[in-house]
Design a protein around this nucleic acid. Structure first.
Lengths: 132, 132
DNA sequence: CTGCATCCGTTACGATACTG
DNA sequence: CAGTATCGTAACGGATGCAG
């Protein structure tokens, strides 16, 4: 593991930039963010608000709105409003977000591959500490 | 983007396994988890609780304890208790966790590289929606 | 030294009702 | 259809005090 490389990249950032980097990564792991991005990534065409909400199963309108707003602000999705009746709003994923998902893919694969390892680790731990 | 590949890996999991996978990834992004792992990864030798807390700047005892317990349960760190006076507890990172950090590295680099992009995106967004 | 228990403020989330 | 406003609940995280 070449941690000097990672540290060099980190040290080059101002405190403000480092904070922002942390925020971005943290935000990606919030409850509905990745799921929403995945839905938009799987769709070839832009999706209306209702279609996204159907596919991100269990999300509330409020939370989905918040997540989409944040993603838009981060430049990870685009939001297009059409002045029609009834109103239409379409969301689409950006290239930036697709790049990021590519990077995230190995991590997800790692997690799926090691699911059995984690189940075993949990079982062993719970046996040692039944109280917890 | 080859999403069929990602979907194939996902579809092979039971609902329970998929839930666990999601939990693992989510946990990695919790406030102090990655920072703690990074500290343990940088150290060649196992670290005592106090040493970890010194280096994970700003973490409370409570949060650090919780994070370390969870990491131990996931098999990402080991915890060794020495029956001495005063008590000594040493934490070390596992190979499994080091593998994971390797996979995570590109994502972190991506975030640092695009910090400027995000700042610009935020500025543009806030200009368009000053109310928000 | 380690780390658990408790209190407390903040934030996240969901349900519901309402607006352009 | 696509939100906004409001409310109530639950989880999170920090500070403090105490025990082994």
């Amino acid at each position: 593991m070449d941690w000097s490389q990672a540290n060099a990249a980190c040290d080059a950032l101002t405190e403000n930039e480092e904070s922002l980097t942390r925020d971005i990564v943290t935000r990606l792991a919030e409850k509905w963010t990745l799921w929403t991005l995945a839905v938009l990534a799987e769709s070839e065409a832009p999706l209306r608000f209702s279609r996204v909400m159907e596919q991100v199963e269990g999300v509330s309108q409020k939370s989905l709105t918040k997540v989409l707003r944040q993603l838009e602000r981060d430049g990870l999705v685009t939001r297009a409003v059409f002045a029609e009746v009834p109103p239409r709003v379409e969301y689409a994923i950006t290239e930036l977000a697709l790049d990021m998902l590519d990077l995230l893919h190995p991590l997800w694969q790692w997690a799926t591959v090691h699911v059995g390892t984690f189940q075993a680790a949990h079982a062993a731990y719970d046996k040692k500490r039944p109280a917890a």
